[in-house]
């Protein structure tokens, strides 16, 4: 896999092969909270993409300067700075979107996808590749949020991107744009994920990439570099793998 480490491979990897939502199931808080409509999902996804790309680039440029011991706090400061920039820009130029995303914009800081990519990729790879890794991951995340948002909006309001698509007689299940609907949509999504994984394993393909992310168990969250005891946790996970299966 290392020999085709190109820009396109990075983009494809983020959008399809390691899609943060559909494959890795990371960053669940924003996924559930802002997908009440397709446009909110897209706005959140793109904001995250910008932060992810810029922080990946910055961290990759600084990888030799940041001492290993304080890398997590350093990453967090870099990410938080970019989030603040995005927050001010959104507030200034798209106040409507800013108002509807509300507190979830500053909370991009604690989105585990960003810190995960910083730790797993950007801190070890050259700047251009890291930039495109961030863009790929971000676009994958945006795509997923937009899809989930569109499904919820379609079922819950009969619209997609604010355009009415359902026939006039359609009575919307407004529960889908309320909080419980988010859980139901995600439950369906993870069930499909499990099914795909089962089919793939039956055919003998390696499906270990599909994970249930932070949600399943903190131990299975190997991207959670934010966990201070990551090494210990990973070691524990390795030992415990037999039991899991």
């Amino acid at each position: 896999m290392e020999n085709k480490n190109t820009v396109w491979e990075r983009l494809f990897n983020g959008i399809v092969k390691e899609n943060p939502t559909f494959v890795l199931t990371l960053g669940m808080c924003p996924t559930l909270a802002v997908t009440t409509s397709a446009i909110n999902g897209l706005g959140m996804g793109l904001s995250t993409t910008v932060v992810l790309a810029l922080s990946n680039l910055m961290i990759s440029l600084l990888q030799k300067i940041i001492p290993d011991k304080v890398r997590i706090p350093a990453f967090i400061v870099i990410i938080a700075s970019f989030v603040t920039v995005i927050q001010l820009l959104l507030q200034g130029y798209v106040p409507d979107l800013y108002a509807s995303l509300g507190i979830y914009i500053p909370l991009i800081v604690v989105n585990c996808i960003i810190l995960g990519r910083a730790e797993a990729y950007a801190s070890k790879h050259p700047p251009i590749l890291s930039l495109f890794d961030g863009i790929g991951m971000g676009l994958g995340f945006s795509l997923a949020l937009t899809c989930i948002g569109a499904v919820r909006e379609l079922l819950g309001a009969g619209e997609v991107f604010g355009q009415r698509v359902m026939p006039a007689g359609y009575v919307p299940f407004s529960i889908f744009i309320m909080a419980p609907g988010a859980f139901f949509v995600l439950a369906a999504l993870t069930a499909i994920q499990n099914k795909v994984k089962m089919i793939g394993e039956k055919k003998g393909r390696d499906m270990s990439k599909i994970q249930s992310g932070c949600g399943h168990d903190c131990l299975s969250c190997n991207q959670a570099s934010s966990c201070r005891d990551r090494e210990a946790v990973l070691a524990k996970e390795k030992n415990g793998q037999g039991e899991e299966a």
Binding site: A187, T190, N194, S212, H216
Partner: peptide, 12 residues
Amino acid sequence: PKPFQGMPIVLL
């Protein structure tokens, strides 16, 4: 049901 074991049933 098998596909619903784990995360999906918890989310439901």
